[in-house]
Simulated scan of single mutants.
Amino acid sequence: MTTVLPVRAPGAATSLRPAGDERSTAGSPAGRARQMLGHLVPWLVRGAMGVAVLAFAVLAVGPHLLGYRTMTMLTASMAPEIEPGDITVATPIDVTGLTEGMVITYHMPVGDHSLVTHRVVSVDHAEDGSVTVQTKGDANDAIDPWTAGLEGDTVYQVRAVIPEFGHLVQLLRTPVVSQVLLYGAPALLAGWLLMTIWRPTHDENEEVRP
Rank of each mutant, 00 (worst) to 15 (best):
A26Y: 10
T105D: 06
V208I: 14
L188Y: 03
A148K: 14
R8T: 06
V161L: 11
P109V: 02
P84T: 07
A55P: 00
H167A: 12
V120E: 10
E127W: 01
V41F: 13
G38W: 05
M108E: 14
D138G: 14
V177L: 10
H125G: 11
T117Y: 04
T201S: 12
S122R: 15
E151W: 01
G137D: 07
F56S: 03
T91Q: 06
E22G: 08
G149I: 00
H64A: 11
L98Y: 04
H113R: 04
L194W: 05
V155E: 12
R173P: 01
D124F: 03
T147E: 15
V53W: 09
L66G: 00
I82N: 08
V45D: 11
E81L: 05
L115H: 10
G137E: 07
V121K: 14
S114N: 06
A13F: 01
S178H: 07
A19P: 05
V58P: 06
T72W: 00
H167W: 15
V103H: 14
L168Y: 15
G149E: 12
A160I: 01
A26K: 14
A12E: 15
G85E: 04
P210W: 05
R199F: 02
V116N: 09
E22N: 08
L74V: 02
S122Y: 09
D124R: 06
I162S: 10
Y106Q: 06
P84C: 11
A139Q: 14
S130G: 05
G62L: 13
A90T: 00
V103M: 13
A126P: 09
V51N: 03
D94L: 07
T196E: 11
A26V: 05
T25K: 13
G149C: 02
A9M: 04
S178V: 01
V131H: 06
G137L: 03
V45C: 14
P6I: 00
R8C: 01
W146L: 00
S122A: 15
V177N: 11
D144F: 02
Y68N: 07
S178F: 01
I197W: 11
P29S: 12
D144H: 03
I162L: 14
V123R: 03
P84S: 10
G166C: 11
P210Y: 02
Y183E: 09
T174V: 00
R8L: 08
V131Y: 02
L5M: 13
S122C: 08
P84G: 11
L194H: 00
T196M: 07
A9T: 08
H125A: 09
L182Y: 04
R8D: 07
F165W: 14
M195L: 04
A160K: 05
P210A: 12
G67N: 09
L168G: 04
D203Y: 01
V120M: 09
P29N: 13
S28N: 08
G129I: 00
I82V: 13
T88V: 14
G85S: 08
K136D: 00
I93C: 09
W198S: 08
G20V: 02
A13W: 01
D138W: 10
G27M: 11
V53P: 07
A19Q: 13
A13S: 13
R69T: 04
A55K: 06
I197D: 05
V208M: 07
Y183K: 08
V120I: 15
R209Y: 05
R34F: 03
L189I: 11
V180T: 03
A12Q: 15
T99N: 13
A26Q: 12
R23M: 07
V61W: 12
H167K: 12
